[in-house]
Every structure is written in C-alpha cells, then in structure tokens.
C-alpha cells in the first residue's frame, strides 16, 4: 500500500507523455518557432567567435638557396618533413541510394 502513490504517478506520467507526443500533431500554425534555438545563425556565429583560436603568423617563404631542385629539407637546415601519407578517399556516393524502403506492410 505504501507504494501506491509511486505507481499512480508513474502511470499518470506515461499517459501524459503519450498525450503530449500526440499533441504536437494538433492543428497549429506551421510558422512556429524553430525547434532548436541554439542552432540559429546568431548563436552559432557567437559560438564560433568565442572558440576561434588566435591566428597563426603567416610563415615567410624562403627561396631555395641553390635554385631549382632544392630539397624541402634544404629550406630550413635541420628540419625534415615527414613523408606525406597516402590517403585513400572513402567511396562516398554523392547521391545516396536508399538504405531502406517504406511500403505498405508485407
């Protein structure tokens, strides 16, 4: 008997939640505010400004000392750049094909 109020509240909440989910289908003005105000342009630009790092200084280009064919490592003595890794681009369909299909039950 002591647990009855808890059962009541849980059951009431479950009914209220379902009613609430259907309430959005009530005939409303379709020009309602956007669902996610945080995604508005003003908020996003503000967030970007705050998180943007201090600009890096533009490096000065040093011409090859010995004309054409100078190795990259010669530009700055002592600095050797790692080899550029081979990157395999993932096969991404520009126009996605259907993954699933909606249809009448079968």
């Amino acid at each position: 008997m002591t647990r009855m109020p808890l059962k009541l509240s849980l059951a009431t909440l479950s009914v209220a939640a379902i009613l609430g989910s259907w309430a959005v289908l009530a005939r409303q003005d379709q020009t309602a505010a956007t669902d996610n105000p945080a995604a508005s342009p003003a908020v996003m630009s503000s967030a970007v400004t705050r998180s943007w790092p201090t600009p890096m200084p533009i490096p000065t280009l040093v011409p090859p000392r010995n004309g054409e064919g100078a190795a990259i490592s010669d530009v700055d003595a002592g600095l050797t750049l790692p080899p550029i890794p081979t990157v395999t681009m993932p096969q991404v369909a520009i126009r996605p094909q259907p993954l699933a299909r909606t249809r009448s039950s079968r």
Partner: peptide, 25 residues
C-alpha cells in the same frame, strides 16, 4: 516498411551535405 530514425548517419550511408538516412518510397 514503417521506419523510425534518430541522428545523422555516418558517411558510409549518407552523402556529404545530405544528412539523413536515405529511404526509398
């Protein structure tokens, strides 16, 4: 044939700039 989705799928199933699970009608 009744479908429910949550979240944007990774590039394996969706094209860049076209978020969403591709569903055929």
């Amino acid at each position: 044939g009744d479908l429910a989705a949550r979240g944007t799928p990774p590039p394996a199933v969706a094209a860049p700039g076209q978020p969403g699970w591709p569903i055929g009608i």
